[in-house]
Nucleic acid binder design. Structure first.
Lengths: 350, 350
DNA sequence: ATGAAAGCGCTAACAC
DNA sequence: GTGTTAGCGCTTTCAT
C-alpha cells in the first residue's frame, strides 16, 4: 500500500505538496499538479482514511441509529435506510448502521464519544427520547427522522402525519363514509410515545371531529394476526362501519383477511385506506390498496443531506421539514351505497 | 474530550501504562490498574477510534456491500442486513452499509484501498462477480452471502436452494400434484447470473425430472404485476396446472390476485408454495402461505461472525455453509382432488 | 511492572 | 508556489 511519502518521492516534491493537491487548500502550479497526479496513478495511491480522519478530526462517517429489537424493519423504514445510504455514498461519506434503541442510551453515549462518527441520523424517534439529549451532550450533530415533542433547535425530517390523516379522512368522507375506524399501531407503541402512533391518533381525532363524526381508533399489533384482532374489535365497536384506515403495514393484510372471512367485500362493503405505505406494498393486495404513499427513500436522503450540510459548517438555520404522503387511489375505496344513489352512479365492481 | 494523556497525568502514570490497561497486552499491577480505571471514569474517557485505527491498522469497521439499484430490498435481504448489523454490534464492530452494485467495481476498488474497512460481507453475489476478484486483489477479507460459480477458497454462507426446491417439490408431489409450475425471478436476473435464480432453476429441473415430471418454469418481474403476467403465461403453457411454486417475493401476491380473478381457489384448485420467504410475509396472504421459510437474519449474522473470525487471525478453514429453508405448511397447499379420492379424506376448506 | 519514545499516514501551520 | 515540521491520539518496541 503506497503512502503519501511514496508519492512525494516519486514526484520529487514534498509530502505537503501532495497533500495540497489532494485537498486543494492552496494553489499548486499546473506542472507539479500533473507530476503528482501521475505519481498517484502510477502507484495506485489512495489516501488512508484513518490517518486523514485523525489529522482532520473528521471521519467522513455518519451513523444511522435505529432500534432493531422487534422483527426487523417494515418497507417504509427500509426505504429510509436505503435512501440514507445512497445519499451518503453520493457525498463521499460512509454510513454506519447502528442498532441503538431508545433504551440503550449508555451504548449511545459510548458510541458518540468514540469520535468515529461525524454526525448521526436518528430513526424511530419517540416523543420523549433520551437519545437526543445524550447526543447533544456529546456534541454530536444530529438530524432526526421523526421528532420529539419539543423540536426547538432540533433539525428533523418527518412525515406530515396531520396532512396524511386529514387527506385520508377527507377522501373517505368525500365518498360518503361516515362510520370510519382508524387502526393504529399497537397500544405499546402508543404508550411508549412512538411519534407516528401518537400523531396520527391526534390527527384522526381532530379530523373526524372537524367533520362532525365520531372518531373510533383501535390499536393493533404489527402483524397479520394483530390486524385480524383489530378488525374484530372494530366491528364490535362499530358494527356499521364502512371504512377502515390503517397505519400498520402488516396489520392491514390481516384486516383484509378478516374482512374476507366475514364476507365483507372490499371496497363495496368496506373501503380500506392504507396509511404511509409504499406503492409496492399497496399493489400486493387484491384489490390494490388505495393508500397514502410515503415519501420513503426521500426521507432518508433528505435527512442525510441536511446532516452533511450541517457538518460542512453552513451554520444556516436548523432544517425542519414535514413531507406529505400522497393519496393514490386504487381499488380498495369507493363511494358508499347511499352516495351512489345520491350521485346516480352505478355500484362499483359489478 | 479527554485523551489518554489526560488520563495518564491524572493517574500519575505514563501513557503506555494507560494503553496497556486498555488493551491488556501486558501485565499491570492491581494497584495501578485501579488508579488508571478510576482516572478514566473520572474523565469519562473513551479511546479515540481513529487514532487507535491508525496505530493498529484495524478500524473495527466491516462493510456490508450490496447493490441498491432497484426498488429497494425485499424482506429477506432486509433480514440479512439487520442480522449482520446486530452481529457486528455485539462483537464491538461497526457495520457500514455500502451501495456497491456488481457494476461498480471501480468504486469498490477505491473503497477497498482506503483501508477504512477491515473486511466486507458481499451480498447479492452473482455467479460471475467481478467484485470478488477486486476485493481479493486489494487484500480485503471477504465473506459472501450467496456464492460464485467457483467457490474454492472463498468463504460464503448461502441458502441451500437445492434442498429448498427439492423439499418444496416433494411437498406438492406428495399431495398428489403432477402439473407444477415454478415462477422464478426475472429473465434479466437469470441472464445476469443471479445466484438464487439460476440455482433454483437448475434444482427445479432436476427435482421434477427426478419425479418423472415435466418442469415448467416461468420468469417474472419482481412485482405484483409481474406475478400476474407470470401466472397468465403459466396457465397458457400448462392449463391443467394444480400447483405453483414461486420464488419471487412480490410476484407471489400478483399470482394470488390473478388466481382470484380467474376464479381458481387457493388451495382447492391450485396449491401455492412461496419459496424463501419470511413467516411474516407468508402470514400476509389469505389463506396464509405454505412456504419455505428462509433463515433470514441468521444468514447475515453468520456471515459477519465468519468474517470476524477470519479477521481475528484464526486462519482456520474457509467457512462455507449452506443453510436450509424450512417447510412451513399453512393454508395455501392441499392434496389434489384425485389424491382425496384415493385417501378418502374430505375436500379442504368446505 | 513501568516509562520513554518512535512511529501509524495524514493535515496544516509556519517558514521561505 | 513549495518545503519543513509539529501535531492528531493511539500502540508498541526498546529500555530499565
Amino acid at each position: 500500500m503506497a503512502t503519501m511519502h511514496d508519492v512525494a518521492r516519486l514526484a520529487r516534491v514534498s509530502v505537503s505538496t501532495v497533500s495540497y493537491v489532494l485537498t486543494g487548500t492552496r494553489p499548486i502550479s499546473e506542472a507539479t499538479r500533473t507530476k503528482v497526479l501521475a505519481a498517484m496513478a502510477e502507484l495506485d495511491y489512495q489516501p488512508n482514511a484513518m490517518a486523514r480522519g485523525l489529522a482532520t478530526r473528521r471521519s467522513r462517517i455518519v451513523g444511522l441509529l435505529m432500534p432493531m429489537d422487534e422483527r426487523g424493519l417494515g418497507a417504509t423504514e427500509t426505504a429510509f435506510v436505503t435512501g440514507a445510504a445512497a445519499a451518503a455514498s453520493v457525498a463521499g461519506y460512509h454510513l454506519v448502521l447502528s442498532p441503538v434503541g431508545a433504551a440503550d442510551v449508555d451504548d449511545l453515549r459510548r458510541l458518540a464519544t468514540q469520535r468515529m462518527l461525524d454526525g448521526v441520523v436518528l430513526m424511530e424517534v419517540q416523543v420523549e427520547d433520551g437519545r437526543v439529549a445524550a447526543l447533544q451532550e456529546a456534541g454530536l450533530p444530529v438530524v432526526l427522522i421523526g421528532r420529539t415533542a419539543d423540536t426547538t433547535g432540533l433539525p428533523f425530517v418527518d412525515i406530515d402525519f396531520d396532512q396524511t390523516v386529514r387527506e385520508a379522512v377527507a377522501h373517505v368522507v368525500g365518498l360518503g363514509h361516515r362510520r370510519i375506524v382508524y387502526v393504529n399501531h399497537s397500544a405499546a407503541a402508543l404508550a411508549a410515545g412512538y411519534g407516528p402512533a401518537v400523531r396520527t391518533r391526534d390527527a384522526f381525532f381532530s379530523a373526524m371531529t372537524g367533520h362532525g363524526l365520531e372518531p373510533v381508533m383501535i390499536p393493533a399489533e404489527d402483524s397479520a394476526a394483530g390486524g385480524r384482532a383489530a378488525l374484530s374489535a372494530a366491528i364490535e365497536r362499530a358494527p356499521d362501519l364502512t371504512a377502515v384506515l390503517a397505519m400498520n403495514e402488516n396489520a392491514i393484510f390481516g384486516i383484509l383477511g378478516e374482512l374476507a372471512v366475514r364476507r365483507r367485500v372490499v371496497p363495496d362493503d368496506v373501503s380500506v385506506v392504507s396509511m404511509v405505505t409504499s406503492p409496492q406494498v399497496a399493489e400486493l393486495a387484491h384489490p390494490a390498496l388505495t393508500a397514502m404513499t410515503s415519501p420513503g427513500a426521500a426521507l432518508g436522503r433528505i435527512a442525510v443531506e441536511a446532516l452533511l450540510r450541517q457538518l460542512d459548517g453552513a451554520g444556516g438555520e436548523t432544517h425542519q421539514q414535514l413531507l406529505p404522503c400522497k393519496l393514490e387511489i386504487r381499488g380498495s375505496t369507493c363511494p358508499t351505497r347511499k352516495q351512489h344513489e345520491l350521485t346516480g352512479s352505478g355500484p362499483p365492481g359489478s
